[in-house]
Design a protein around this nucleic acid. Structure first.
Lengths: 131, 131, 131, 131
DNA sequence: GTGGTCTAGACCACA
DNA sequence: GTGGTCTAGACCACA
């Protein structure tokens, strides 16, 4: 269920969290579904239980899952998770753009880039090359 | 001149580098301006000289400043720094958008938001409210 | 595996980096090989961990190795390292020849010498004797 | 007589030494010519007397000049200086080429590069690009 | 255990 | 005084 890249610079616990969010948002994991036990998942992934523990803790902190001592960990509200995530992303995006403009980046350059990336999926598009 | 956030997760030497870039790009520091000596800045900021040394070394490596033993450190080319800054910002922006799309944010929502912010300066615009 | 010259004017961290490059280019260290831990190598060489850390960081920066917190440091791409090595050697060679010509060494003397050394393997050939 | 680049990474004392060698080898300074006093030259160049002192000391060490306490510094044998210099350069060149071949650089690549640089003055020639 | 950052402070080359 | 390297050793995040 979870796919990790062990050579990535991203901490494994973050990779697990990201995977979890994808599984929830994508509907694979539904509300109240029970998650594998920390040790079970650790064994499956071949990682240290500490690492999975940390991932679960982080998922719980942001409200994606809820852990009950003695019973296990369960998916909480997917819709709420998604809302939280979107709000946060847009806040980041706004701050980044605001700062970029402050230091002289051209609005048209930004808009062109975002269009190329978002609409046409042209991820090779480099605004610093094409001007 | 330099302001640090000691609680931040970003290493101090990176904060110094970022501040330096902003000061150069923002025109506060001009070409050939002499920078404070490593030890002087370290004292001012209340950090270890090694930390400032590391920041200066990194700034030199990317071409923002040039350091000469016995003479001091000087602002190199603001134009080059500006290029660096732009490249970096667009890289951040691209990553953020890519990640947002991966989790299901609508391309049209992103484009609308960026247009409202960039072109019309409508910083109150909240894509999660207006749909 | 690593041999240092503590009397050299070259910084220790650069010596380590150079040794690393040679070990990779020479095929002693292969792709994905795990390198000794920072502290382990520091002890072996009798130097401070910071010094090895600096060497590893520099090796990573130029793409010779990749370090992952909690896992260790690994040989990245020998092919890339080889490219680096070649570039560096030719740069040294060019500088040396340029400087030599500036001070009046005859181009024909240099060419003859290089031919004798490179093509015929006549390492005894001494251009200052034979003219 | 001496021209310095104060922003260069090369130490000023080395620049003075290099200039001195050029002046001697180029015949501007002849055998037994008296050199300007340390303080005089320091003032002319606008540098610290320590720096000129170090340059003179280095020039004397390698036999380019000879200093007599109370009398001043004088050019020693230009021919001998040149011979020393040439020998040293060829030794460096030989070592560099030997090492390059050891790690797999192609002899033909080296010869082509040296020819382009030495004979045709094509300093832009980059053997790693043209293969 | 593993890498990364940081403090405290010495020592060196150079100006 | 100025930058650069290094030691000794702490502390952090991550596995």
């Amino acid at each position: 269920m979870f796919v990790l890249d062990y050579r990535s610079k991203l901490p494994i616990y973050e990779q697990i969290q990201t995977q979890m969010l994808k599984l929830i948002v994508g509907g694979v994991l539904k509300e109240n579904d029970q998650l594998p036990a920390v040790r079970t998942l650790a064994m499956e992934l071949g990682v240290n239980p500490n690492t999975v523990q940390k991932a679960y803790a982080e998922c719980e902190r942001v409200g994606m899952i809820v852990s009950v001592t003695g019973k296990g960990s369960f998916v909480s509200s997917p819709a709420a998770s998604m809302q939280l995530y979107i709000k946060e992303k847009f806040k980041e995006l706004k701050n980044l753009i605001q700062e970029s403009l402050e230091y002289g980046l051209e609005p048209t350059m930004i808009i062109s880039a975002v269009n190329a990336w978002c609409e046409k999926g042209e991820w090779d598009y480099d605004p610093t090359q094409t001007g």
